[in-house]
């Protein structure tokens, strides 16, 4: 798995949540806690393995759950064009 953030998207972390604007279709997306954590890590360039381990620690979830969250979330962001 490798991810890069679409540089055309505008994004800001406000009050603990990432808000992402897609200028192409003028949509605003709001990420939840887990999404914000994953997105922040991806922005920093963290590897998927580091993010999964981080999710387990931050949100007290099992490795399986963390992997599932990571997969579903990145898939969703890819569909929305936020990740390339």
């Amino acid at each position: 798995m490798s991810f890069s953030i679409n540089p055309d998207m505008a994004a800001r972390l406000i009050d603990g949540c990432y808000y992402i604007v897609d200028p192409g279709n003028r949509m605003l997306h709001m990420l939840n806690d887990t999404g914000t954590y994953i997105y922040s890590e991806l922005k920093k360039g963290s590897e998927p393995e580091t993010i999964i381990r981080g999710l387990c620690g931050e949100f007290e979830v099992s490795r399986g759950e963390a992997e599932r969250d990571m997969e579903e979330f990145t898939e969703d962001l890819r569909e929305k064009g936020i990740l390339l």
């Binding site: 406000i14 009050d15 808000y19 605003l28 997306h29 709001m30």
Partner: peptide, 17 residues
């Protein structure tokens, strides 16, 4: 909605959105 939430939270937290 995300738009309403962003408006509200920027207002309440005084963020120059």
């Amino acid at each position: 909605s995300p738009v309403a939430r962003l408006g509200r939270c920027s207002f309440e937290n005084r963020v120059p959105l």
